[in-house]
Amino acid sequence: MKYPFLISIPHGGNEIPEEVSSRLALLPEEVSWYCDPATRILFDFGQWVESSIDTPISRMVIDLNRPPLPLPPRDPDGIIKVRTVDGRQVYRPGQLPDLNLIHQLMVKWYFPYHQRIDEIIDKHPIQIAFDCHSMLPYGSAEQSDAGKCRPLICLGNYGDETGQAKPGSLITCPADWVVGLAEIFRDEFKGKDEVAINVPFSGGFISNAHYWRKGIPWIQIEVNRKLYETDGIHGHRPVASEDQVLELREKIWRILARFWDKLSDNK
């Protein structure tokens, strides 16, 4: 049996195209660090789901979970990154991609990803989509929760902390769905405060745009990287533990399956 899920993993890649590599101020290992390490494995649910989509491209080159406008430098954390979440310059002085290169990147990577999501929803019996990410254990300097510890899991539907719509906006899935999923996560992770709804992230462009386009419910899942990364040694950044990633993948899949089974029983 396949679950009627679409799994989107837009930030797990670390590929740097040749036309961009010489422009970057960041080292390749730093580019990987500022992405969502190991998420292409963590959320790889194989034949259990109707469909999945991911990408090899690094979000530091082009961020598929941002709107196509505005272009840099107006939004430093937009589709083309100007600065990292902790304030570092992504490109060497004078090497920020020009309009022609931005267009090439969007045509090759950005628009095909979003077109593929629409095609999957049209061709497969998708009933819910999950946009899957990882997050640092604490808020970085240029983020709204700078310096604050983050929960183990954050679920987003563009609403408030109870999953309800904020004034003047829509939510990307019913409030009782995201609350129900949060309850199962809390059961597995044994802590109410370890699972948050819409804090610190309520959802990105992918879940919002494609909910508007197709009406399929979307939930954004953010997993704290401390659940699968080992402590850095001698000043090096933490790295993903393969065993912990695989163990966590099994737990997350168990949660998603329980959520849908329970939801289906109540229909």
Rank of each mutant, 00 (worst) to 15 (best):
L69T: 15
S22R: 12
A38P: 03
S21G: 07
I80Y: 01
V90F: 06
V223Q: 06
I16E: 05
P137W: 04
S32F: 06
V49Y: 04
Q47W: 07
C149S: 12
L263P: 00
T39N: 07
C35P: 02
E29T: 11
A129D: 09
I171G: 06
Q89I: 01
D118L: 09
P28T: 12
I41R: 14
Q104W: 01
K214E: 08
I128E: 03
R59N: 10
H11R: 11
I57F: 00
W212R: 14
E30Y: 06
Y228T: 10
S207R: 02
D63C: 00
D75I: 00
A257V: 11
K251A: 12
D131G: 04
D160K: 03
P238R: 11
L24I: 05
P125Q: 11
Q143G: 08
K192N: 10
S144W: 03
Q244N: 11
M60P: 03
K251T: 15
V85S: 14
D118G: 14
K190P: 01
R83E: 08
D77N: 08
I16L: 07
G232I: 05
I255S: 01
G191Y: 06
P4L: 08
Q244K: 14
I120F: 01
G180M: 09
T162D: 10
Q164L: 15
E142T: 08
W212E: 15
W48N: 14
N198A: 12
S51T: 07
N224T: 09
L24P: 01
V107T: 15
G46D: 11
S264K: 15
G139W: 05
P174Q: 06
E15C: 04
P73Q: 04
S169I: 04
Q95V: 00
L24F: 08
R237C: 01
P125E: 13
I216E: 03
H234C: 09
E30L: 09
S207T: 15
Y34M: 07
F259S: 14
I80P: 00
I126C: 02
G191P: 05
T55C: 03
E142I: 02
K192T: 12
P125F: 11
L152P: 00
M106P: 01
I197A: 06
